[in-house]
Design a protein around this nucleic acid. Structure first.
Length: 363
DNA sequence: CGGTGTGTTGAA
DNA sequence: TCAACACACCGG
């Protein structure tokens, strides 16, 4: 769990800006890419031939050569490598790294090109990055669809900054239309349980996230505090937040049922919590149906379903097919099975497949 | 079978 | 944190 992309609270970090390395550099053309790693620079009769086996290293950060002459992109986080995919061109891989670096480490991350080609602040891309999880961005990079998705975002952002079907699952704040969306960081998401939307008038905040993002002063532990959250429409919701000793859990109580009612939340739907990266620390709340299909890769699209009684539903989430038990109360929380390799990927991307937690990719 | 991306290590 | 290297394993 510590490997998840869970804390983007680190997004506010400060990293010294380092002038992009490559940009205008003339790569030693001697580094010709070779066929299958070997293709020896046929050398005169000696053992120097062995040297030619070595793959040409990249002049770009985060880029590694592949045996077939292509280039891989990777970035590290929490002692783990996050693979960003393979590319035909070295600079494509470098750009993929740049994008990931900006998403993972913030605006001032050290990159290969970004600072140069983008010095004129690109609010749209920044917002785009801010409104997509690391997992989503990585997925786009791997599938080489980042550029397209960003373009889509640019088009739909248009002049009014209003949320459109083209936006990510949570879109932009889009309120008013005259105010630009403030940069915000994703805190975490949770698929609501039946009781979260039931008569108990409370939402359980997974301990892990509660303690990280909504710490309670020892004194206010029991009585709780009032927290304000702004939704996508700009409406402010005020919830009481406290710790229940009886169940040893953190909960949003007073005010929660009104939110459930107005949004028509149903078990399995995803609620998302964000916080402004600006000094005001404004909190935001948004939600999405667990099966929405809005054309974005980020969306969970229902691939096959025919009625509520169907035993199995397959959803495509972040480009990964997931089988989910039918919406019976018992299984409604978890995302059933993840298979083989995908399972590892899911873990690495912070998508918890186990039943213990329903939090999906705490961003 | 070709290629990808993971396992792993040593350097910074 | 990062790149280098080897190769297991995966999808075609």
């Amino acid at each position: 769990m510590d490997l998840s992309f869970a804390d983007e609270s680190t997004t506010s970090e400060t990293v010294s800006i380092t002038p992009a390395v490559a940009a205008s550099k003339s790569p030693p053309e001697s580094l010709c890419r070779v066929g299958s790693g070997a293709s020896a620079i046929t050398d005169a009769e000696n053992g120097v031939e062995a040297e030619s086996r070595k793959l040409p290293s990249s002049r770009f950060k985060g880029v590694v050569p592949q045996p077939n002459g292509r280039w891989g992109a990777q970035i590290y986080e929490k002692h783990q490598r996050v693979w960003l995919g393979t590319f035909n061109e070295e600079d494509e891989a470098a750009r993929a790294y740049d994008t990931a670096a900006q998403r993972f480490r913030g605006r001032d991350a050290v990159t290969n090109f970004k600072p140069l080609s983008e010095t004129q602040e690109d609010g749209v891309e920044t917002a785009f990055l801010n409104t997509h999880s690391k997992a989503e961005i990585v997925d786009m990079l791997r599938k080489h669809t980042y550029g397209d998705e960003l373009e889509q975002s640019r088009r739909s952002y248009n002049s009014n900054g209003r949320r459109t079907a083209e936006d990510g699952p949570f879109g932009f704040s889009g309120r008013g239309g005259d105010r630009a969306a403030k940069a915000r960081e994703q805190l975490f998401e949770k698929a609501v349980t039946p009781s979260d939307v039931g008569k108990l008038n409370r939402l359980v905040i997974p301990k892990q996230h509660a303690e990280r993002h909504f710490p309670l002063q020892s004194g206010s532990t029991s009585k709780g505090v009032l927290l304000n959250f702004e939704d996508a429409g700009g409406k402010v919701w005020r919830f009481r937040y406290s710790y229940w000793n009886s169940s040893q859990s953190y909960v949003l109580t007073k005010g929660w049922s009104r939110f459930v009612k107005e949004k028509g939340l149903r078990a399995g739907d995803i609620v998302s919590f964000q916080r402004s990266t600006a000094p005001d620390n404004q909190l935001y709340i948004d939600w999405k149906s667990r099966n929405i299909n809005n054309g974005s890769n980020a969306a969970a699209a229902v691939v096959a379903v025919s009625g509520r009684a169907q035993p199995v539903v397959m959803v495509r989430l972040f480009g990964v097919n997931i089988f989910e038990a039918a919406p019976s109360d018992a299984a409604i929380d978890g995302y059933g099975s993840c298979s083989g390799k995908r399972m590892r990927e899911m873990e690495l991307l912070g998508l918890d497949c186990s039943k213990k937690q329903r939090v999906i990719g705490a961003l």
